[in-house]
């Protein structure tokens, strides 16, 4: 595909947001980056362009404008901030792919704050009923974007959603970020995916994986 897609990353200066932005800046996508502090976003843009002068990345001062211009919106903000942002982008995100990356972790990282019969992704879908919410990037750590191949194995990145074309598009984006995309199922599978991250975090803390860790499905 040669037509450039425009991807808005909301929360671009966080660990996850900047990891996603840096890795996608090497692909055939145009990035619109938003975060609370515009100066930090501009620093990120400079950093991206220093590494890759051909990268199309731009700081943008308003999440609504960024999402209006975008084909794909990545909400790289904590779960607690999603509701407020959803209100701001709801109209302009109509019919668009919105990627939910969040894990609604509790304070001790021992579990999720959402009830077992839902997930962060499903809650976001309720807030954005006319958008195509897709769960992605939640099972990988921020540091994995710099090293998606860990111990000689390319980390898997699971994707969940209910729109076939949107799943295909997001699989391509995940691949461009350096991971092996696996479509896990409908959006409700996000419940499992979000819990997988709880386990990965617990294991990382217990065994000192140094926050470079990921899932890999072995199969024949």
């Amino acid at each position: 595909m040669s037509t450039k897609q425009t991807i808005a990353i909301i929360g671009a200066t966080g660990n996850m947001g900047s990891g996603i932005a840096k890795s996608l800046s090497k692909s055939n996508n145009r990035l619109l980056l938003f975060a609370q502090h515009l100066d930090k976003v501009q620093t990120l843009v400079e950093e991206i362009k220093k590494g890759n002068p051909a990268a199309e990345a731009e700081a943008i001062a308003c999440p609504t404008n960024a999402s209006w211009e975008a084909d794909i919106i990545i909400l790289a903000v904590p779960y607690a901030a999603e509701k407020e942002l959803a209100d701001k982008i709801k109209d302009v995100a109509n019919q668009k792919i919105v990627i939910s990356i969040s894990n609604p972790l509790n304070e001790t990282y021992s579990g999720l704050t959402t009830s077992p019969d839902t997930s962060a992704a499903e809650e976001l879908q309720k807030l954005l009923p006319n958008s195509k919410v897709i769960k992605a990037f939640n099972t990988v750590f921020a540091a994995d974007f710099a090293t998606p191949v860990i111990g000689g194995q390319q980390a898997d990145a699971f994707i969940a959603g209910s729109d076939a074309a949107a799943l295909q598009t997001v699989s391509e984006v995940v691949q461009q970020a350096g991971f092996n995309p696996i479509v896990a199922g409908e959006l409700t599978v996000s419940r499992t995916l979000e819990n997988m991250t709880v386990l990965l975090i617990q294991l990382t803390m217990k065994y000192n994986y140094n926050w470079v860790a990921g899932w890999k499905v072995l199969h024949n």
Binding site: K4, E69, N130
Partner: peptide, 12 residues
């Protein structure tokens, strides 16, 4: 509900 609002800049 079915419409996609989209901004496109000059030359894009």
């Amino acid at each position: 509900q079915y419409l996609t609002p989209k901004k496109l800049r000059r030359k894009q």
